[in-house]
Amino acid sequence: MARRNIPFLRAQRLEQEALTLGIAALIALALAIWTSAFLNGNNLASLQTAIAPNLIVATGMMTLFLIGRFDLSVGAVMGLAGIATAWALGAGASTPLACLAGLAVGLGIGALNGLFVAGLGINHLIVTLGVLYMTRGIIEVVMSGQKLAGFTGFPEGFTALGRFEAGGLQGMFIGAVILLLLMELMFRATGTGRNLLFLGGNPDAARTIGIRRRRVEFLCFVVSGGLAAVAGILATSRVGMANRYMGEGLEMQIFIACLIGGGSIAGGKGSYVGAFAGVLFISLLTNAFNLLSVPSEWQSIVVGGVLVLVVIADAIMTLRKQNRSWGSILGISRFDRILRAKR
């Protein structure tokens, strides 16, 4: 029997990822040709430092997407972790200790999410949304006596963490990419990665082959919280201040990046490369709007429109995979009959 010739991208389940990456590359190319500011060293550096925290958060979010969950509290966790680190530094803690404090906040909130979702079986949308509100409330209370800029004036040892660069490449960007590649390796080469995909694709079947759903789910939420905290600490050290605005609305950007990059909220679909492509796409789009000085509301129109199109395309492709004819999908039955008559 002849082997079916499956294209590489389909075999590796990278079709949507490749498409998103291609569009992102096109945006970059267009920007490089039409605007002089894009290839400017400053712009490239700020682009990298804007992408890096998003990539780190998206890595955690994609892990949850794989098992059919998501975490809306990441933006607030990022903010609170940055503030906790800054507060610890202000109280005289050493840099590693302060970073640990920030990380502990992230892991703690992640564990709280995990406890409710995995332990008690509460809907993850509600839990992470509630935690988002609660964390934002805590941030407001902590910052209520502070100036708008928040905590500033950090020791050099801490700011060096986010400002390290080598030959035009930002240290935190390289770190984020390495983290992403390691996760992709784990996802493709180890049983753990495949188990995540099983769990998202078919929870019941996954349980029968001995995957401990609750435990995996709990750990994924802890990982997501911890990575959001890492992103918050790095961003704080980069900009040199921790205030209430950090990470505001970030959860939606990351959520959309993961969807555009091939994830599905139903689970069992997606990859870390896809998270990378999605974040790249969103960040380049933001950069393009900034460089062309387009008002920010148009940006939300475009991102929202892209998301709606992706969701519709995804739904149509799913129906096609169930061998529904184009006619019945689009609801033009007459057209359908003509096609069938031809066959």
């Binding site: 509301e297 939300s300 929202g304 998301l307 709606v308 519709i312």
Partner: peptide, 24 residues
């Protein structure tokens, strides 16, 4: 209804889209 889209996903997109139009 027609494409069986998850309404949570769809309306998150339209939330941004419509908010943008409103802000314009």
């Amino acid at each position: 209804v027609r494409f069986g889209i998850n309404s949570l996903m769809l309306t998150i997109g339209s939330l941004l889209l419509i908010r943008g139009c409103s802000n314009v």
